[in-house]
Write a protein that binds this DNA or RNA. Structure first.
Lengths: 116, 116
DNA sequence: AGGCTGTATCGAAGTTTGTCTATGCCATGG
DNA sequence: CCATGGCATAGACAAACTTCGATACAGCCT
């Protein structure tokens, strides 16, 4: 499969991002790669209280309630948000550890080398 | 539909992330949401020279050459990388403007409010 | 010019994703 | 204790994505 000749450049020394790590990080970015989920995250993050009730998120979109629930589940599984039930209602909040980690990763890409 | 009753919380004041903007940003995150593309970006970014020849990227994966070419195209369309042909070979480099913008967005999420 | 090599484009197959309706679970409140 | 409302899960289906082989295009070299 197309092994380059010899005159192009030096061979790869090492992959900066391991296969396994890339798969894990891709899961988080994939969760961010949908307009609805991005807006959900933004809605949650923009609250001074730090949390939003699902009953407030659902009517903000032109989508069915199960669809919003599904998107929230993906955000939760990606570690981007956390949920807590208080009585009748469920509240979602951002997990800054995850967003910070992703921000640091992207910064390192433009900075110099890819870090963890 | 499910319009909530009245006892939950106050209504939404405004969406922090417009629908159109969310769609645009989601495209970039979607490009990042694949292990192969993440590793490609990492490989390109980790080079001191700032650029990598495609002939070096292709054999680094257990995938066909058209598949790598396709992933590079998506990264380019998302504004994450740039390509330049020099003679026989094509070189890819990271566009720091884009990665920095995404990093800033994620930082703002954990910081306080969602910014542009 | 002709052949060779590196890269991109073109359909096509299989899998994943986003959305819906229908239904189930949990907590509240008569 | 049963009815009601908020939220999650299950199954179904269309659209999108990832991958491939085949092919086309672009430079180099003899």
């Amino acid at each position: 499969m197309s092994n380059q000749g010899e005159g192009c450049c030096e061979p790869l020394s090492e992959e900066p991002l391991a296969e396994e790590q890339a798969a894990e990080l891709a899961t988080v970015f994939k969760a961010l790669g949908d307009p609805v989920r991005l807006r959900l995250l933004s809605l949650i993050a923009s609250r001074p209280s730090g949390e939003v009730c699902v009953c407030e998120l659902t009517p903000a979109f032109d989508l069915s309630q199960p669809t919003i629930s599904h998107h929230l589940k993906l955000l939760r599984q990606a570690g981007l948000v956390d949920s807590e039930r208080r009585g009748t209602w469920v509240y979602y909040r951002v997990r800054p550890e995850t967003t910070d980690r992703m921000a640091a990763l992207l910064s390192s890409v433009s900075g110099d080398r890819a870090a963890v």
